[in-house]
């Protein structure tokens, strides 16, 4: 093979690359934050004994965990408008799908984190006369949050990669930008390799961070 690499040509338009990276990071941060907010509320609500409250939340979590994210994004963009009679802009449909997907996983992480605190701790808190709110704030959550951080970081890493699905609804993230540049330059090898390297550079430090967290929590 005598392929002549021409990275300079595909990387020439640095503004467009930076824009793509910016969109990818923006969607990652926004949907992770949105997902965590959903997770906190739904996760805590799932601890309630009231079935009318927990049943719909369980349904939400399972629906979003057991269907492909790609279908969710496409569904919000192409299918939901038929039901609503007005169409969501692509950026919103994709953002909604990504956020609800992250929210479903965060809900499970929060619920599991709180459940992992043993009955004895609850009783010990009650024994000194704490109310439910005090018990949560002072005893259960501080311990549970430490256990939630490693899975949350892992899920966030997955989420950043998942933003590449923005491609299907033409939101100009890193992946979509790559496909446009490929179409213009006919250099898929250089473009997609560059994109992969950029994703790797963004995520590798995060995985190292996650590993460090896990060893610290184990201690």
């Amino acid at each position: 093979m005598h392929y002549h690499w021409d990275l300079a040509m595909v990387l020439a338009d640095t503004d467009r690359w930076w824009h793509g990276i910016g969109i990818t990071l923006l969607y990652s941060v926004a949907t992770v934050v949105g997902g965590i907010v959903i997770g906190v509320f739904c996760g805590l609500a799932l601890l309630s004994p009231k079935r009318w409250l927990t049943l719909p939340l369980e349904a939400y979590v399972e629906v979003f965990r057991c269907t492909p994210l790609l279908i969710q994004i496409v569904w919000f963009y192409y299918a939901l408008p038929i039901l609503l009679n007005f169409s969501l802009p692509a950026w919103l449909a994709a953002g909604l799908g990504l956020t609800l997907y992250m929210g479903a996983f965060c809900t499970e992480i929060f619920r599991a984190g709180v459940m992992s605190i043993g009955r004895g701790q609850w009783q010990a808190g009650r024994a000194v006369g704490m109310t439910y709110a005090q018990l949560m704030r002072r005893i259960v959550l501080p311990q549970a949050v430490r256990r939630m951080i490693p899975p949350l970081v892992n899920q966030s890493i997955t989420q950043l990669k998942n933003t590449a699905l923005l491609y299907v609804v033409a939101v100009p993230d890193l992946m979509y930008t790559s496909s446009i540049i490929t179409a213009e330059t006919y250099r898929p090898l250089e473009v997609y390799t560059s994109a992969a390297v950029i994703y790797f550079i963004m995520l590798y430090p995060l995985t190292l961070f996650a590993k460090r967290l896990e060893t610290r929590v184990d201690r």
Partner: peptide, 18 residues
């Protein structure tokens, strides 16, 4: 909670806040 605060309880497995 106020009732429980008047009564001290010590458990078999200590249950200190770790």
């Amino acid at each position: 909670a106020a009732y429980r605060a008047r009564i001290g309880m010590v458990f078999q497995h200590f249950e200190l806040f770790p």
